[in-house]
């Protein structure tokens, strides 16, 4: 995290004994965190990782488990594009165990596009689109909300509480609420509102979840998560000393200038943390997809879930989990290097 002050070390130039003492203290203070994480996270993570190389079934300890090497990963990542002339047999053309995504024409030839797990490929696309759009929206709206409730006005206290409502309703429940609000007729609030304002005819009510599945989940997730972003940004805004603004005002800086030159740079560390955690959460999105959308529009995590609890393929589901881990880790590294974050 790029934080303006990195000067704590300045105080301790006193000598190596002091440094050693600090290092020892640091270890002691970190110990509880490591103890907890090793206790609760280490075993499950290792277990997930190891089982991803096997064909272990879910909830069946007596079944024989064989080591299958990278087979799970090959199936998850495998795609096939092959010439597929009219009249050719699908059975003979497609790699055994693969499934057709579609058939397409290119330069007058017909081709087959198949994948080991087309739903997984689709889930990756869904999740990344979802993440980019919803995180971008959450930050725009969240920053706006944070700036507003950081200003003095009557009723600010209530506003700050109201702002947190969406985050405070458990996701499992708020998504059920939204499922109803997104009904395909005017029993749903969205269609009722649109038709009350005369924007649509009741007979032309929008079937949100079937016509715009991704938009529906984004809508719900943005509503749900703006408070989280806003609260973090608000906390960040409050660490910015007010006299900086005063100095800015004296120098004749306009409001936008002050925002871009003072607020945003100083807010940057907080923005970054919020961004990292939101992206990680969005990439693992589960509840909203699971409750709002039918099986056919999956996120990476709901696919993982289905593989485990519907198909009972624990090994395969673990491989999915490991891939999700890798994808998320790549995003983290990308952020860190993109913003040249200095952690040390």
């Amino acid at each position: 995290m790029a934080v303006a002050t990195t000067s704590s070390n300045a105080a301790v130039r006193g000598g190596s004994t002091l440094t050693k003492r600090q290092a020892r203290l640091a270890m002691i203070m970190l110990a509880p965190t490591f103890f907890v994480l090793i206790l609760v996270a280490f075993y499950p993570l290792v277990r997930t990782f190891l089982s991803s190389f096997t064909n272990e079934p879910f909830a069946n300890p007596t079944a024989e488990v064989a080591n299958v090497g990278l087979e799970n990963y090959q199936k998850l990542l495998g795609i096939q594009i092959a010439p597929f002339p009219e009249g050719a047999s699908l059975r003979d053309t497609m790699i055994t165990g693969y499934r057709r995504v579609n058939t397409f024409e290119l330069f007058g030839e017909r081709y087959l596009f198949a994948a080991g797990d087309p739903m997984w490929i689709q889930a990756i696309v869904n999740t990344i689109l979802f993440t980019i759009i919803s995180v971008a929206l959450e930050f725009s709206i969240g920053l706006l909300v944070a700036l507003v409730v950081n200003t003095r006005f009557r009723g600010r206290g209530i506003m700050r509480a109201v702002m947190l409502i969406p985050w405070a309703i458990p996701t499992a429940i708020s998504t059920v609420l939204w499922r109803y609000m997104l009904n395909d007729n005017t029993t749903g609030a969205m269609n009722a509102l649109l038709s009350a304002f005369g924007l649509i005819e009741p007979s032309a009510s929008i079937a949100w979840r079937s016509q715009y599945p991704l938009l529906s989940v984004i809508l719900v997730d943005v509503w749900k998560t703006v408070p989280f972003v806003a609260l973090l940004l608000l906390a960040g805004l409050q660490t910015i000393p007010t006299d900086l603004y005063e100095a800015g005002a004296v120098d004749g800086a306009t409001v936008p200038q002050r925002f871009f030159r003072i607020t945003l740079p100083l807010l940057f560390p907080t923005v970054l943390i919020a961004l990292v955690f939101r992206t990680l959460d969005a990439l693992r999105v589960f509840d909203v997809f699971a409750i709002l959308l039918p099986n056919t529009t999956r996120s990476m995590a709901t696919h993982n879930y289905e593989m485990m609890v519907t198909s009972y393929q624990y090994g395969y589901a673990s491989a999915t989990g490991v891939l999700i881990f890798i994808i998320i880790f790549a995003f983290t590294i990308l952020y860190m290097s993109l913003f040249r974050v200095e952690v040390d």
Binding site: D184, N185, A207, W208, R209, Q211, P294
Partner: peptide, 8 residues
Amino acid sequence: ISPEGVTT
């Protein structure tokens, strides 16, 4: 004869 949304 069935709504578009019947698929959900």
